[in-house]
Write a protein that binds this DNA or RNA. Sequence first.
DNA 1: ACGCAATTTGAACAGTCGTGCAAGTTCAAT
DNA 2: ATTGAACTTGCACGACTGTTCAAATTGCGT
Lengths: 245, 245
Amino acid sequence: MARADTRQSILEIAEHLFAERGFGSVPLREIARAAGVHVGSVTYHFGDKLGLLEAIYTTHTRPMNARRLELIGEAMRISDDDQRLMAVLRAYVLPAFISSYGEAGGGARFTRMRAVLSAEGNPEAREIIAQAFDTTTCAFIDAIEGCLPGADRTAIVWRSQFLLGSLYYTLINPERITRLSDGATDGGDHERAIEELVATSFANFKAIAVIDAARREGVATPATDRDDGRGTPGLRPHPATRKRP
Amino acid sequence: MARADTRQSILEIAEHLFAERGFGSVPLREIARAAGVHVGSVTYHFGDKLGLLEAIYTTHTRPMNARRLELIGEAMRISDDDQRLMAVLRAYVLPAFISSYGEAGGGARFTRMRAVLSAEGNPEAREIIAQAFDTTTCAFIDAIEGCLPGADRTAIVWRSQFLLGSLYYTLINPERITRLSDGATDGGDHERAIEELVATSFANFKAIAVIDAARREGVATPATDRDDGRGTPGLRPHPATRKRP
DNA sequence: ACGCAATTTGAACAGTCGTGCAAGTTCAAT
DNA sequence: ATTGAACTTGCACGACTGTTCAAATTGCGT
C-alpha cells in the first residue's frame, strides 16, 4: 500500500468509525480493512487502540481550542452585554462544527466522536476525551457570566450542560430532526444547527434573570409527584420461543 | 439460585449495566455474574441478547408512555397558553426521570439507557429503542405548537431536539454539572434537573416568536466563516515507542 | 410420593477480539 | 550497489464473545 499516508488514512477512517459506532464496538481489524491496511500497521503506528484514539484526539483538539480562544478573544472586545453573549456562544458552538483542521465536516465528525464516546462510558477513553476540555469550558462559563450581571452561576452551569447536550445530540441523531419535520429541515445542516443552537442558548441564558427574579418572588413550582404503585407487568412472551433468523 | 426472581434480577442488572456502558460493551457473562445467575439462564429466558434488551424496553415503555399521555391530557385542559406550555413540557420531561414502574430512579436509569444506546449506533438496538417513540413525540410537538400560535414548526422541531439532547446528556454525564459548579449543584439531582429542563425549554419555545419576528425584519446573521488552511500538524511522538503498563 | 414441566447447570462450539513478533519488503542515503 | 532504518506482512497466541444443547436439578400439581 501507499507509504506515507497510511498513518493519515488510518486516523481518518478510525475517526469516521469511532464517530459512528463508538470505541469499543469498532474492531481494529475493521479499521485496517477500511483503510486498506494491515492490522499490524495500526499497532505499529499507534502502539495501542487507545493510542490511536489519543492520536485522533490530539490532532483535533489543538486547532479547535485555538480557534475557540481566538473567537472568544474577539467576542470579549464587544461592550454591549447581549451582543457579546451572542458572540461568546457562537465562539463556543462554531468550532465544534467547523474545524480549522482537515477536510470540511471534520470538526463536526470529531465532535460527534466525542459525544458518542462520552456516552459509551469507557473509563480509559473518557479520560482521553475529557483532557483539557473543562478548562476551555470554564473560560466560557466565566465569559457568559460576565454577560449576565447578577445571574446565578449554578443556573449558568446547568444551561451550559444543556447547550452541550443539544449540540451533541444534534450531531449524534440528526435524522430525527429530518424525520420529525417531515423533511422540511435537514438535521445534518450544520449552518442551520449552529444558528439554532446559538439562538436557543441565547434565549436560555437571557431567561435566567427572569427566572431568578420569579423565584425570588416566591412563585410556586409544582412538586414532582411520584407514583410507586407497581405498574401492570404486561404480557410476557413464552421464554425461549422467540427466535431470530 | 432463587427461582422466580432470576428473570427479574437479570432484567434489573442488565438495565443497570446497559445504561452505564452501552449494549455492545457489556458481555452476557458479566450480566449473569452480577445477577448471580448462569449464562445459559439469560439465553433461556430471553433467547437473545437483543431479546433481553427488548424485554427491558417493553417493561418500561408501556407505563412511561401511559404516564406521558395521562399528563399531557391533564395539560391540554389548561386554557392559558403559557401555563399549558409549561404543563406540556413537564409532561414530557417528568416521566423520563420518574417512572411509575419499579423502584425509585428506574425511570431515569431507563432513559439513560436509551440515551446511551442511541449514541452507540447499533442498528438493531436502535430499532428497538426507536419503537413507538416518535408517535408520542409527535403528539408533544403538536401540543407545543398549539401553545405557540404562529410559530414556525421546524423551529419547534429543532428545539424539541435540543430538549431531548439536554435531557439525555444530563443523565449521561451528571458529574460534569457537579464538577463545573464546584459542587454547588448536584448533577444527579433529578428534581432540580426536571425544574431546570422545564424552565429552560419554556424560555426556548417562547423565544421562537421573537426570533421569527426578528428574522422577518431582516436582522443579519453573521455568516459562518470557514478556514480551510491546514492547521499546524503538531508534534508527533515516535511510532511504537508509546507503551502501556 | 410421584411425575412432569420449568428451570438451572456445565461444557463446548465457532468466531472474533487486541496484541506481539519474526520475517519480509520498501526506500532513501551513502 | 549496499546498508540501515522505516514500514509492512503473515501468523499465532490467549482471552473473550454470543449461542447451543444435553444432562442435572428443582418445585409444583396431583
